[in-house]
Structure formats: structure tokens, C-alpha cells
Simulated scan of single mutants.
Amino acid sequence: MTFSIVARCAETGQFGVAISSSSPAVAARCAWAQAGVGAVSTQNVTNPALGPLMLAHMASGADAGHAVAAAAAGDGFADYRQLLAVDSQGGTAVHSGSKALGIWTSARGVDCVSGGNMLASERVPAAMVAAFEGAKGTLGDRLIAAMQAGIALGGEAGPVHSAGLLLVDRQSWPYAELRIDWIDEGCPIAALSRAWEVYKPQADDYVTRALSPVAAPSYGVPGDE
């Protein structure tokens, strides 16, 4: 019931996850990333605990392949899980259990891996990877382009209602964490794209506000001088 892409920017060192589903608040359960370590998604019949577990393995020196394998092996229900990871070197890995739902598949690219289940077409992940690799701009821009390519091929077999974008840079907190947790009508990926357009010009300034408030710009809101 989900399609996603996890990726690394070799130029900036940022990591990110973009994801969409027919289920509510998909990014709250499935998208995980840690600065300097990697990004992962845990989806299908989701066990959210596997996200931090994969990141912990990578933080301890495991590559993406070993982190995914260890998480799957220790879960006890690996046949039901779909796990994706990218590590600090751009290595990628994916596990799709035999009991993944509907049409399920995955595709790997340079610094990225995409996967999904209950897909409208088995071509969706490959199209997302191709769009990511061909897109220009920031990591967030390229992840949004990948999601747009996925939904253009139908995305999930049924209508999607939630989407999310998670980015980490150098800090312990997310550089951006944008979520469309539920939308009855319209496309959550389109709404997510718009949210990123609004947030992107301010993202660096929010980091500055955290690290050096005296150097932070004002946005002209009431009371903000």
C-alpha cells in the first residue's frame, strides 16, 4: 500500500525519503533518516521499529545491505516486510518479503533505491529512479520529481491519501519534515510538492535560527522584528 524512494546526495551529504500511500500518515511510520548515517523506509505490513534499527546498524558501521539483512532476520516476520536503505557511501539495499501485497517490486539507481507494494504497475519504482537520476536541483527537488514520476504511472493501485518528505543534513534534527497525513480529494503528492516549494527557500534560515539566532533573518510576521 506504499511506494517510496530513499536517497543520498553525494554533493551535500544529505539523506532523504519520499513516500506515499493510501494509508493515513504514512511518513510518520515508514520514513527514517539520520544525518551522516543514511535513510531507510520500512513499509508493506509495517513495523516502524525496523527503521531506527536499520539506522543503528549503519551508525555502527554496517553498510545498507547488512543493515537491511539484520533487520529482516531479527524481525520474525520478514515475509511481510519491505525494507529500503541507502548508506553513507551511497550503497543501497532492499528486502521485499514473499507476502508483500499486490504488485510489488523495487529498483536501484545511483545513490537511491525505490520500492513499492500494491502498485498500479511494476514499472513504478524504475520510473522513480530514472526521474531522480535525471532531475536537477536539491535532494528535495529530486525526490519530489521521483514521486511525481511514480504517480504519473499510477502509483499505488488505489487512490493515495498521504505523502511525506524527510530530509536530514548535518544536524540531529530534520532539515525538512513535510507531511500530508490525509487528503480526501486531490493528490497528496501535489500537496507535498507545493509544501516543499514553500519550505525550500526558508530551510537554511531555520537552521540558522537554531544555531545562531542573532544571525537569523526576519520573515516579517507580527511580532517578528
Rank of each mutant, 00 (worst) to 15 (best):
A69W: 02
L139Q: 03
A69H: 07
F3P: 05
S114E: 01
G116N: 10
G158P: 04
G36A: 00
P188Y: 14
V110T: 14
G220T: 10
G90C: 09
D111V: 06
A56G: 13
A145Q: 02
N44F: 09
V129L: 09
Y206F: 15
S98K: 11
P213A: 09
K99I: 03
C9F: 05
G150S: 04
M54D: 05
C187T: 15
G155P: 10
S20E: 12
E225A: 13
Q171R: 13
S193G: 15
L153H: 04
A191S: 14
P222S: 11
V124P: 00
L55E: 09
V207N: 07
I189E: 03
L84C: 09
A85N: 08
G140T: 01
M147D: 10
K200C: 09
G154M: 10
T2V: 14
A85E: 04
L53C: 04
N117P: 08
A145L: 02
Q82Y: 05
A130F: 01
F3I: 12
A25R: 10
C9N: 09
A64D: 01
D169E: 12
V207D: 06
A49E: 14
G65E: 11
A107M: 11
R123Q: 14
A195R: 14
A72L: 06
L84H: 09
G116M: 06
V129M: 07
M128S: 04
S212I: 06
V26H: 05
L211Y: 12
G38N: 07
